[in-house]
């Protein structure tokens, strides 16, 4: 597998992209280049995985593209919007309307029911949302009988499914997931991954997922490899075996 030059960003086909993204933590001796001049774009309607060794900058890249954190230099855009030009309020609104999130754990507000958690971004923006769409999402995660339960009354896999439903509810331009299956057993993990795959294939969503797991990555359409804050390579239509081989090769 050879690494391809990074695709040039064209907004019609790209849900998000970063150009020359650099993120530096600390100064002087303690300086850490978490991201070092990264150019990357995520295609609309595709499931992209980001892989790389621990500390390679995967989470940082995701946080910066999602507007949770700011770059030291370079730019990121969601759709046509350049994030660096946005105020905190506008960024918040953008996250609410255009971006969905799934974290490794602690995705849900413990005081709200599953349903309230799902529609949270909509209610925060005082929107009703598309009811047919929400119903379809709920049916897809098959948790209709658990909607009035609190997160503490759901299993880990169920909680992650609710989190995915929440990310989908507002029909965002792009969904970011940071190790969404990291805390789950393989069966529940498969369940969640299958569901994410369907969200892309059947519902036409765009998902970017950070993962360490080759099997999880094999659900994606494309894998972007990071190492030392740089894009180290790319793979299309991956299988678990291909990924493992590539990682071995990367480690050499």
């Amino acid at each position: 597998m050879t690494s391809l030059p990074p695709p040039t960003a064209t907004n019609a086909t790209h849900a998000a992209h970063a150009k020359g993204a650099t993120k530096i933590y600390g100064t002087g001796d303690s300086e850490v280049r978490a991201l070092d001049d990264v150019d990357v774009a995520f295609q609309r309607g595709k499931f992209t995985a980001i892989m790389g060794p621990s500390g390679s900058g995967k989470s940082t890249l995701m946080h910066c593209i999602a507007g949770l954190d700011s770059l030291t230099s370079g730019s990121v855009s969601i759709g046509d919007t350049d994030l660096s030009k946005l105020s905190d309020k506008a960024l918040t609104q953008l996250r609410r309307d255009k971006v969905g999130f799934i974290f490794q754990a602690f995705n849900l507000i413990p005081t709200l029911t599953a349903y309230e958690n799902i529609v949270l971004p909509l209610t925060l923006g005082k929107k009703k949302g598309d009811e047919t769409w929400i119903n379809r999402v709920i049916d897809t995660i098959s948790l209709r009988d658990r909607l009035e339960h609190r997160p503490s009354e759901l299993s880990g896999g169920q909680q992650q499914r609710v989190a995915i439903a929440r990310a989908l509810a507002s029909q965002p331009d792009i969904i970011f997931a940071d190790e969404p299956t990291g805390n789950l057993d393989s069966k529940t993990g498969t369940e969640v991954l299958t569901f994410m795959r369907r969200a892309v294939t059947d519902l036409g969503q765009t998902i970017v997922m950070v993962t360490h797991d080759a099997t999880a990555a094999s659900y994606a359409d494309r894998i972007v490899f990071l190492a030392d804050g740089k894009v180290a390579g790319e793979m299309f239509s991956p299988t678990a075996q291909k990924v493992l081989d590539y990682l071995k090769h990367l480690g050499e």
Binding site: T92, R96, F101, F103, F106, P110, L120, L124
Partner: peptide, 16 residues
Amino acid sequence: RREIGLLRAVGMTRAQ
């Protein structure tokens, strides 16, 4: 603070 961080991430404004 995690909960607040999560809320901010999914779009809660400072005023909220």
